[in-house]
Design a protein around this nucleic acid. Structure first.
Lengths: 131, 131
DNA sequence: ACTAAATGATACCATAATAGTATCATTTGT
DNA sequence: ACAAATGATACTATTATGGTATCATTTAGT
C-alpha cells in the first residue's frame, strides 16, 4: 500500500527545486540534470502541473517553467489529487446497495475517519515545507 | 488513491459475517449467497486467510471455515498486510542515494508520520468492531 | 528568414497490480 | 460409491503505473 505514486513524488521534488532557485524560469533540462528523472516523463508531469494551474510555462528559446503560486499555496494534497485522483478507500465499502448492512457501515465510518485524517495531514503540508 | 483493495474488503466482510454467526463452521456457499461475492475469488481469499492463520478450514462434506482467532484478535491492519503488503509510501522518497538532499528528506519525515498514524489507526480496528 | 531551444499535444508501449476464472485433486460424511 | 466441501495451481482480463516517441508550435538570437 502506498500513499504517493512516482509521478506525485517527481512533481513534489521538481516543484521543491523550482521553489528553491533564485531564477524564476527553470527548464526541463536543468531539472533532468539535477534531479535525475527521465526527461519525457518529467515533461509530461510538468505539462500536467501547468494545465492544473500550478506552473506557468514559457515556450521557445529561453523558455521553461515557473511557479504560478507561492510554495506555501501549493499543497501536497492538491498534487495527490492531480496525479492520483481523489482520496477514497474502497467504493464497495460505501455503496449501500451492495453492502447494506449496518455492521459494515460501522466499519466504513471508522475507515472514513482515517481517510479524513490522512487528508487533513496532507493538507497541512506544502512545497514551502521543503525550503 | 485507495487504502483498501477489493480482496481486503471482501476478507473483512466475510470475517465479519463468520464472526456474527452462531454456527462455527461456515461454507463458501453461504458466504456467496449472503454477501454476493464471486465464488472463486472468495474461495481464494479464504484459502489465503487460512494459510495466514486467520481461519480454520474443514474439508469434505460438512466442511467449511471457522475463525481461528477471536474477532478482537483479527486486526484490520493484519488483513491489509496479508493482501496488500506492508504499508509504504514511495521508496523513492526514502532511498537516499537517489534522493540525497536534506530538504526532501524533511518531507519524507512528515510523510512517514502520516504513514504511522494510518498504521496506528488501522491497528486499533478489529473484526470485533463489526459486531 | 533561419535556426536552435524550448514547451504543447498526443499517441503509443511495457510492466505490474488488481480482480478475477477454471480445473483438477483431495478429503470426508452419509 | 457419491456428493459436498476445501486445496492447489494455473490461467486470464482489465486497469494503473511508469514510462517513450513524435511531431507541432513558439520564441530568442543571429
Amino acid at each position: 500500500m502506498k500513499l504517493i505514486t512516482r509521478d506525485t513524488d517527481y512533481a513534489i521534488r521538481a516543484l521543491g527545486y523550482i521553489a528553491g532557485r533564485k531564477e524564476k524560469i527553470i527548464t526541463v533540462s536543468e531539472l533532468v540534470r539535477v534531479l535525475k528523472m527521465p526527461r519525457p516523463f518529467l515533461r509530461k508531469i510538468l505539462q500536467i502541473l501547468h494545465k492544473n494551474g500550478i506552473l506557468n510555462s514559457y515556450r521557445g528559446l529561453g523558455g521553461g517553467f515557473s511557479l504560478k503560486k507561492t510554495p506555501k499555496e501549493i499543497l501536497i494534497i492538491d498534487l495527490i489529487k492531480i496525479f492520483q485522483g481523489p482520496l477514497s478507500i474502497n467504493e464497495c465499502v460505501f455503496r449501500k446497495k451492495i453492502c447494506p448492512n449496518r455492521k459494515t457501515c460501522l466499519l466504513s465510518k471508522k475507515i472514513n475517519q482515517i481517510e479524513k485524517s490522512v487528508y487533513t495531514q496532507f493538507k497541512g503540508m506544502s512545497i514551502a515545507d521543503l525550503a
